[in-house]
Design a binder for these strands. Structure first.
Lengths: 135, 135
DNA sequence: CAGGATCCAGTGGGATACTG
DNA sequence: CAGTATCCCACTGGATCCTG
């Protein structure tokens, strides 16, 4: 593949490339590059959850962001919303097969964060004190 | 592990939990939940790169965001900055061992995005047209 | 070449109040 | 319970200009 018109044709499905600005995969990347997506997706791995379940599970999320993020995930085929049409309302959110595969990849990232906090924090401290000394 | 004081002690290193708002791993998560981090980290897997290399490799990134993100990654021990003190300036950025392990996990996410654009786009189209019909 | 400094429009997301 | 609607400000990040 020559560098001929890499810039113009941006990226085809056959050679999808997130590094290319115009590649549609960037849209998916934007979806993933989101704090709440990174928490909601793996949270749903254990099975369907209700709105209130997720609110409890994910510390610090607001109702607005929960709904907004769920809608976006649903829109992109990663989550299904099941309204049981009951009173009081009962709505379940579950991963689609597509969503499940993404959730697994995301969970690994989350696990990495949990596993390496110590190293990251130590690095940050040493970096910050090094900067302080330079002044 | 009892649910006794899960809420109060938030999270210790022994049971780090990104779902807990106060858990320090959230800081690492915030680092990861970033569009440019998600592109810079895997880009560095092939070896050290210079500022201009990264600018070319990563479509759409601005000089400001590149420098800013690199600084943050360096601060957290994921990237090392090597200034060769030459004229004209020559500066290399490379992954640390810690950064490399994260970069691998991130690359898998990027690959997922590249591999599933089609499915995501189809889902989005069908979702959007379904919404339109309801009106 | 690498990147600091500024300006500033746009937006993300919390708080709050209301509804079926 | 599961949302919707609104207000509104802090911060994000692009554009532009400048420097060693």
């Amino acid at each position: 593949m020559g560098p001929r018109n890499l810039a113009t044709k941006a990226c085809l499905d056959a050679d999808a490339n997130v590094y290319a600005e115009a590649c549609p995969s960037r849209a998916v990347l934007a979806l993933v590059a989101d704090k709440w997506t990174l928490l909601i997706m793996p949270a749903l791995r254990q099975g369907p959850m209700r709105n209130s379940d997720l609110m409890r599970r994910i510390g610090g999320i607001s109702q607005k962001m929960l709904t907004q993020t769920l809608r976006e995930l649903e829109r992109n085929g990663l989550v299904v919303r099941v309204d049981h049409n009951e009173v009081p309302p009962r709505v379940d959110y579950a991963l689609t097969p597509l969503g499940r595969s993404l959730a697994e990849a995301i969970r690994k990232l989350d696990a990495w964060c949990e596993a390496h906090i110590d190293q990251v924090e130590m690095a940050r401290q040493s970096f910050d004190t090094a900067i302080a000394q330079k002044v």
